[in-house]
Design a protein around this nucleic acid. Structure first.
Lengths: 186, 186
DNA sequence: CCAGGTTGTAAGCAGCTGCTTACAACGCTA
DNA sequence: TAGCGTTGTAAGCAGCTGCTTACAACCTGG
């Protein structure tokens, strides 16, 4: 009985747009995702996208801002790096798409770029608290950059052996190397 | 007198296409570069692009295959990582755009994806010779991924402080950390 | 029960995209 | 110099893009 039951439900429609857009932006990037694709996946008329969000770019901003801060808010700093790395490496399921969306969005200018930078800054800000080195923020950026690079090579270019490697092996190698970047002096 | 002198020169026209396309693909990525943009920058009629290369995708393949192997052929293995890192970090000039083109191309499917993977494999193959660890190729992929991530964060998202950091500082931090990944056991 | 705002739908618009076609200008070779 | 293949040009096509508009269906408050 629940099927087709929530027609004419603005909140549900909005959410359907956000969910569909999050999935497609993460998989294909901004440019290769059309508003018709989003609407179709959401099961909603595409004209409503513009009523609810104003533009494709504005919808993208909501998606990236939301997904980026979700993981950030639910993970303690000292585990942020390994948790983010893990969630990237785990296949399928309802995993967090923040990094994929972030890197797939490269090139979109305007307001979305500002949001992207802000989310990145928050990530790096948290990572920077893990070391007391004077260039803590630069080290944090480099750690973040490695995460992005691994996501890029695995998910986007699909290069072997990285793409098919055991998550445990990757974590071990990366965490060992990253330790010299992000550790307290005592 | 040399101006307007080489009209009706198929070789020069082809080269003009390749140069213009290399620049624009590296800067904007595949999707956001139009064939009209390329032709305009090359100073050539856009219909000729299809006569010489067949399609936009085929032109892209030539660009990425050429630029990727250029640096590879002129750099000794033990310096490939630091040289690539350096050339990414140095501003302006006629620097090698291989990595930018590579990462900007994310998402383009088909034959271009195969070329991308092949170039990446050649890079990683060289890096893998630097260590005698059993998982040398995975380590090489991870090193390559870090390069890509740094390029991404600096050039595409422009995040500070990484984007504006001193190349020497970045090299020092990265090379120190990467040493544990790519070093001989004795 | 009905006016008026909210939600959903269908159609279309203008601009851009990759690509094609028809044709003119050129220069080599016989 | 006449013929012919090569190079360059202008125009246009069909499809897709983000976005808008006009309108119907619905629910709610008076």
């Amino acid at each position: 009985m629940t099927e087709q039951a929530r027609k004419r439900d603005a909140v549900a429609t909005r959410q359907a747009f956000l969910d569909a857009a999050a999935k497609l932006f993460a998989e294909r990037g901004f440019d290769r995702t059309t508003v018709r694709d989003i609407a179709k996946l959401a099961g909603v008329n595409q004209a409503l996208l513009f009523r609810y969000f104003g533009s494709k770019e504005a919808l993208f901003e909501e998606v990236i801002a939301r997904s980026g801060r979700e993981q950030l808010a639910t993970t303690p700093p000292e585990r942020l790096f390994s948790t983010s790395l893990r969630s990237m490496l785990e296949p399928g399921g309802r995993r967090n798409r923040a990094l994929e969306t972030y890197l797939r969005s490269s090139g979109s200018d305007g307001a979305a770029a500002a949001i992207r930078q802000e989310v990145g800054r928050e990530y790096a800000g948290v990572l920077a608290t893990l070391t007391d080195a004077p260039d803590a923020e630069l080290r944090a950026d480099l750690a973040l950059a490695w995460l992005m690079g691994i996501a890029l090579v695995r998910e986007v270019t699909g290069k072997e052996p990285l793409a098919g490697a055991d998550p445990d092996d990757i974590c071990r190698l990366v965490l060992t190397a990253i330790k010299t970047l992000l550790e307290r002096s005592e």
